[in-house]
């Protein structure tokens, strides 16, 4: 034994422990600064824009005059877009997840689909924009309509929904299925009566997060040409539209300070909507975990 026989801390160990302590506090400080950045970001936006968020802001069309400008068409456009996207993407995504978890045979086709979905989830959103531009806007002749936007957005969030729904379905124990099968139920009856209800909280959470993504996405909408001056509200899926993130982009890209403040106002509304949706998701998850 080279060290002393009693338990006195050696000088060298003292130095090593000092290093360890320093490192620990370094990691804490770095993590703290990451959280601080979030704080700065939120503070910056709120202090820039809170003055603009009022009833007039919510109920006015965009304007060249900042004091008259508002987000009415953008807000309504976003509502249209999200509703249509939900209508298209939710059934497709959930059914796809049901197929992959409950029906699909374990073969190469299934594997191809699984790998493909994972990869689609990582494709840059702007590439989906290109797809929308070429396929929906130009080829299918849907122009810059809400439905073209919603179809593009649906394809974009489909992998997100499928992956979340698959996870929720996979978490349902097999004993539940076997119990139902043993009573003579068909596969669909098992899924409808037992698997889906049990997986619902997880699926809903995934859907809400996917729709949040759709609400915040900007690039694909710019690609399909949603960045136009729109001073009316869409009345049918074939109408032109604008959306909140587009309006924010528009105002941010202007050089004037006042428009930046308007952009901040728009961001406050956008983040407010997202916060509400996330709170809903947390609530559903919480209720799901209780039952």
């Amino acid at each position: 034994m080279t060290t002393n026989k009693d338990l006195v801390t050696s000088q060298r160990l003292r130095q090593r422990q000092a290093k360890a302590t320093f490192f620990k506090y370094f990691c804490i400080a770095v993590t703290g600064s990451a959280v601080l950045i979030l704080g700065i970001l939120l503070y910056q936006i709120i202090s820039d824009g809170y003055r603009w968020v009022d009833w007039q802001f919510m109920t006015s069309y965009p304007s060249r005059f900042p004091e008259k400008a508002g987000i009415l068409s953008a807000f309504v456009g976003t509502l249209w877009l999200v509703s249509l996207t939900a209508l298209l993407a939710i059934p497709t995504g959930v059914l796809a997840a049901i197929y992959l978890e409950e029906y699909a045979p374990k073969n190469r086709w299934t594997q191809l689909i699984e790998v493909n979905i994972a990869n689609l989830a990582g494709v840059p959103s702007i590439v989906f924009g290109i797809l929308g531009l070429a396929l929906f806007v130009r080829f299918m002749g849907l122009n810059r309509s809400v439905i073209a936007g919603a179809m593009t957005m649906s394809l974009l969030i489909l992998p997100v929904i499928i992956i979340a729904a698959k996870e929720a379905i996979r978490a349902i124990p097999n004993s539940l299925r076997q119990a139902a099968f043993a009573l003579g139920a068909t596969r669909w009856q098992v899924v409808r009566a037992h698997v889906l209800p049990a997986a619902l909280p997880g699926i809903l959470t995934g859907i809400i997060l996917a729709l949040s993504r759709a609400i915040g996405e900007t690039a694909p909408l710019i690609m399909i040409g949603a960045l136009t001056y729109v001073a009316f509200l869409p009345e049918s899926p074939m109408d032109e539209f604008t959306a909140l993130p587009i309006q924010i982009f528009n105002w941010t890209a202007r050089p004037q300070e006042t428009f930046h403040e308007l952009a901040a106002g728009g961001i406050i509304v956008l983040l407010g909507v997202l916060l509400l949706m996330n709170a809903l998701a947390v609530y559903i998850r919480y209720r799901g975990s209780k039952s």
Binding site: M1, T3, D6, L7, V8, T9, S10, L13, R16, Q17
Partner: peptide, 20 residues
């Protein structure tokens, strides 16, 4: 007790104990 001194005494670094 390790050789008569308290292994859990406040001034004992656990690393020092594990070295032995």
């Amino acid at each position: 007790l390790y050789r008569g001194s308290d292994l859990y005494a406040e001034n004992v670094d656990p690393v020092e104990a594990r070295l032995r």
